[in-house]
Design a protein around this nucleic acid. Structure first.
Lengths: 186, 186, 186, 186
DNA sequence: GATGAATGAGCCTTCATTCAT
DNA sequence: GATGAATGAAGGCTCATTCAT
């Protein structure tokens, strides 16, 4: 039964992540539960407060971030330009905008966010700093750009649109990421 | 009492514009009315549907856009770079993100938006096109950038953050506009 | 300007009578004013309270009743049966159901109704009593039927249907009046 | 908790039936919930739309109709007159007037009414037809009266009075039913 | 552990009524 | 006198959250 519970928990987090990325932080928890195929009470058992759920989604996000970095890191020596480009787009694809709050920790204070994520955030920022340094070394990024600043930019770019259907939004986003990366060059 | 009614109407539009720019399109009309210092029924008398109110806010936005363009247009001959820069920041200060829908008309379809604004939108886009052409001529912007694309970028950058308090958000936005404008150069 | 005011007043009463007959006593006064083609404030100037308006409609109804009686009275000697029948249907056509309250005074107590109509009610009932006596004399109606009872029956039959569209309702009503009159025979 | 939920549901239907019979179809759902002793959201959980609730009340009504018929049917052979009389009064006591719409299906079209009750209506009408035939056979009712017509008459007679307190209304109704039944004789 | 049911609070919308022009 | 505007109150409906099975 432990495995079952775990599966439920994961389904809830996945559903919440998808909803948050698209519709923002103020999603209907009822809808999340339905989307995850569990009862609303199961959601509350796993995540007593909205903050707890967001914390889990955030942790999930950070781990994906680290995975991306691990994937792009080795490539940057061989072909810095396309590795950096791939990194930027991959991060943007995560659409962390709605969680900008926690994502760009330095700048943000939000009581709705869990305190316990300092470690993850620090680790994540450190990883970004590493890849950023390589990019700077390769002349792809201005020297004065900090990791937190970079993330804040990504976050601002990938925020959810409030209840509006924009066709080809993904393409617009990709285009904007291109412009963003270009604008960050020395 | 005609003047009084007018003042109330304007107060409602102003309150709605502020709320929408900050919190998005799904604001509480009750809150708007309170913010404007009028009863809820007064809001409804002036704007029977949510769409009507959004339409008024949008019209207001467009007129401010045109004012900005008229202000920046004459300066661009003398000092293209700073005029273009001022233009970009001024438009971003309007925070049209929540209304991206109508703002960058070409890309968007939304039934909640009024149909009657085609004219304003077209005029607005035409005005942007003019100033954009000058900027291209001055070598400040890539040749292949369309007016609608430019506006969509601004809109994506200035979307409201979903219910999150980010300190110094205005500064982050300004920084991002700088990067955006830089990224748009040839 | 006196004539104008009078015309307005009459228009309001007519509109209210029509609405009440069809939709009952709980009509929207705003709708009545619109229907009458006057501003809502004009309605309130003429009829400060809902009771005042209903009173006027009721007075109007009573006068129509009297007119019907005056029309049928002379005919009853020549052809009692068809005169009585015509009378019943004509009264039913007034659809006094919604105002049953006041219409069948003896049985009803309603604080929303004006006190000042006693005279009209008495006169109206007296007139009904006259024609009823003739009908009894002609053997068309049971001896023990009182005027108030007769009216209550008509009223119950002609009440407005609550917000439901019944096709050919008028025909059903006429049929029911026929049955009613038949049932009242000795 | 299944039993509890069932009890709540029944309480809501009972409260709604009482309110509808007295005040008509446009009752305040809030009032129904209060009357039933449950929260408004519980009402909505059981009956997402007003139509759903009305449908349930209607189904309840039909089942009571059938019960009455089953009770009166066997008696009609022994004493047709009093059995038929008892039947008419019992049906009138249900006060189906507000639901006339569905009650006399043939004549009515209402989008607020549920589509799914055709079966119940047909069964109910068939049952009425049976008892009606016996009554006709016993010479108590005209040959040309249809079941739907009979029901429409009952419905018209038992409609709710619009927000008016008529003392002894029940007695007036009973008297009118008597007249009605008498009027239906050959 | 999981589930569905119950609840109150909040926003949306309409309407009777009052007020200033 | 007539009018349109302003307002509060009330009902409709949804959703986050708690509870009993």
């Amino acid at each position: 039964m432990r495995a079952d519970a775990r599966a439920n928990r994961d389904a809830v987090v996945a559903a919440a992540a998808a909803e948050i990325a698209t519709h923002g932080i103020d999603i209907s928890l009822t809808a999340v539960a339905e989307h995850a195929g569990v009862g609303i009470a199961t959601l509350y058992r796993n995540f007593p407060t909205r903050t707890d759920l967001i914390g889990a989604v955030l942790a999930d996000l950070e781990s994906r971030m680290l995975a991306i970095i691990e994937r792009c890191q080795p490539l940057i020596e061989a072909d810095p330009e396309s590795a950096w480009d791939a990194f930027g787009h991959a991060v943007a694809e995560l659409r962390p905008g709605a969680l900008v709050t926690a994502f760009a920790a330095e700048f943000v204070t939000d009581d709705h966010l869990p305190q316990s994520l300092e470690v993850e955030r620090a680790r994540s920022l450190a990883a970004v700093r590493q890849i950023l340094d390589r990019a700077k070394h390769a002349g792809l990024v201005r020297e004065d750009l900090t990791a937190a600043q970079f993330q804040m930019g990504i976050a601002l770019i990938t925020r959810p649109l409030p209840d509006v259907a924009v066709p080809d939004l993904a393409q617009h986003r990709a285009w904007l990421v291109d412009v963003y990366l270009r604008g960050l060059r020395p």
